[in-house]
Design a protein around this nucleic acid. Structure first.
Lengths: 341, 341
DNA sequence: ATAAAAACTTTACGCGCGTTAAATTTTAAC
DNA sequence: GTTAAAATTTAACGCGCGTAAAGTTTTTAT
């Protein structure tokens, strides 16, 4: 097998001129079918591919797309990243995945490094409260960016995420309808803006239903939500801080810690009569099916959030990187009934 | 703030010639301290950075490092990837992270795409049994590659991973010493070669201790280990297939499913007297602390596996991409005692 | 069959930077 | 202060490909 050095050489071997070969790689349909066939025939025999560095140096726009998530060790983000990656590849782009690992400094460094990649666009799920707003603002000014999962007011060309009100209203109404209205269990200073929206939704729904909201706030910072939920729950249980037999956790990872604490304290959780407590949550984390008991929760519309995010980004790219107005798209939750409530 | 187009322009503004500036970016210590100061001073004022595409086109070796894991939705790999990324950055490289998402086709596509990145080196945790050996072999012939986590005989310039014998011997000996010798719970056709080594180690240790090995194999394929463990456990419990009150799971994700099944069946798991079953496992998955009950398991030496992997890769790169002989480095496990056994 | 349109070839320049060789300047050594 | 060594400058070429202009061939339409 001959080793081919560059497009010049490949063009010679295929019997087509280099500019035409170049055109082919840019868009196979832009050349005559017969020449296309000849090129692809040569491609079979010789295994050549254009040097992406030379290509990207000369094209005004690369085919790169950056995907940035706040915390990849959370399987929720791993799953959604997977979908985003595949959609990008299917559309002929080269995605590169980055995780801020919960740290502002890393998020900034990623955005910084992303600039030199000269990406056609970026899908960004920001850290949220601890994001460096000005850094992200500056980045969005230079790179077409669609925010997803977690919204930062006014930043990015568009936002695609979940409708937190829909999550909480469904869980609260379900618990109320089938038992008693829940208390709300959350972190005192949540990193994610969705958490704030969920608290507000909880208060609103409770008041609308004519009940008094009861919010339990637990300490802890960072992204070790299970640990925070676990410690917080142990403290609350010890102090008999639960006014109701019904708890709604702000998110599944807190709930995982909560349930572990209940188990250790011998508190039976579930909707059966012999259970002292019902626990529900939000997100439908990949592990929610395997908690003890399995977790009743409001599921993200993964597929739609992911597909709409990439669609929006592609539109943005085709519009030259700017939208007239910033749009926000929210998808409702789907209630998943399991054993915990 | 003036926008700088290229190195020529930046060099002019900093009062240094372009070749010297180029040399500086290659290695800041290779220029005289005074000129280095002048460059860095200009760097502060003008915010210029070399075009990575032009750089990579001309350098024989890029500063790219590929990190490939089999399944990123498994927090174990997310965690180790995080460490690998950081080590690469600290050493002045640009890591890019890829996940095969459990699919051979994707693993091949990733390796394919990685070639055009012309990386200085690659850290590869292969899928294992379902990897396309010949594709990986071909890849390793072209790119300096260090395998980690999961070994493929003879492939890659080196392997760094965990000593499966150490994992199993510690868990088996502990369970035997403090109770009865365990049965071994695993998938019938495990995707990961570590699983096979763990089974062999189990048999060997049991025989050495004078007990008869008892292996429970459950059906299922893919990477949804929790689901497989859950279904398998339900079946085994239903059929009263447990000969002992002591079970060692091949890995934590299976154990998570196993424990969920036990909970559903009302079987108390733990080392206390009122428990019917003890369950231990291997890996120390990030969620092992929050199972019900919390999981006794043998922990990977994350830090050492990760740091040795990158060290080995750096040595490999400095050696020009080839080692005299292929080395295999194994790190022992650390037994983590929790409530399940 | 003829003219117009479309696709292709040839030629050539540019992208931003690595790198080399020869000439020049700065530094270090004595 | 002289001299050799080290660092820098100047000038120039090459990397692999995008792309534009002008000329040639092929296709399509009439």
């Amino acid at each position: 097998m001959t080793k081919i050095k560059n497009m010049e050489e490949f063009a010679a071997l295929s019997g087509i001129s280099r500019p035409t070969v170049s055109k082919y790689f840019h868009d196979p349909d832009s050349v005559r079918p017969t020449t296309r066939a000849r090129i692809e025939e040569a491609l079979e025999r010789f295994d050549y591919r254009p040097n992406i560095y030379a290509v990207n140096q000369n094209r005004k726009l690369t085919k790169n797309i950056g995907i940035v998530v706040p915390y990849l060790a959370d399987p929720f983000f791993a799953e959604i990243a997977r979908y985003l990656e595949q959609s990008c590849i299917a559309a002929g782009y080269r995605p590169s995945l980055f995780s801020a690992h919960g740290e502002q400094k890393l998020e900034n460094e990623i955005l910084d490094g992303l600039q030199s990649l000269k990406p056609a666009g970026v899908l960004l799920a920001p850290l949220g409260r601890i994001s460096d707003r000005s850094a992200i603002e500056k980045f969005c000014a230079n790179v077409p960016t669609v925010l997803f999962d977690s919204n930062l007011d006014g930043l990015g060309a568009a936002f695609v995420g979940s409708d937190n009100f829909s999550f909480v209203s469904q869980t609260v109404e379900y618990m109320t309808r089938t038992g008693e209205p829940p208390s709300f269990f959350e972190m005192r200073t949540p990193a994610n803006p969705n958490a704030n929206k969920r608290r507000k939704a909880y208060v609103e729904v409770m008041e609308r239903l004519g009940f008094e909201p009861h919010i339990i706030k637990v300490d802890g910072k960072g992204w070790a939500f299970e640990e925070i939920g676990h410690k917080g729950a142990l403290k609350v249980l010890e102090e008999r801080g639960l006014r109701t037999g019904s708890v709604l956790c702000s998110n599944d990872r807190l709930a995982i810690g909560f349930l572990a604490a209940c188990y250790e304290q011998g508190i039976r959780v579930g909707r059966r009569d012999d259970c002292a407590l019902r626990v529900a949550s939000n997100d439908d984390h990949p592990f929610a099916k395997f908690t003890c008991p399995s977790l009743t929760t409001a599921a993200h519309d993964y597929d739609n959030v992911a597909s709409r995010s990439v669609e929006t980004l592609f539109e943005l790219i085709e519009s030259g990187g700017r939208f007239e107005t910033r749009t926000e798209t929210l998808f409702p939750a789907r209630l998943v009934l399991r054993d915990s409530a």
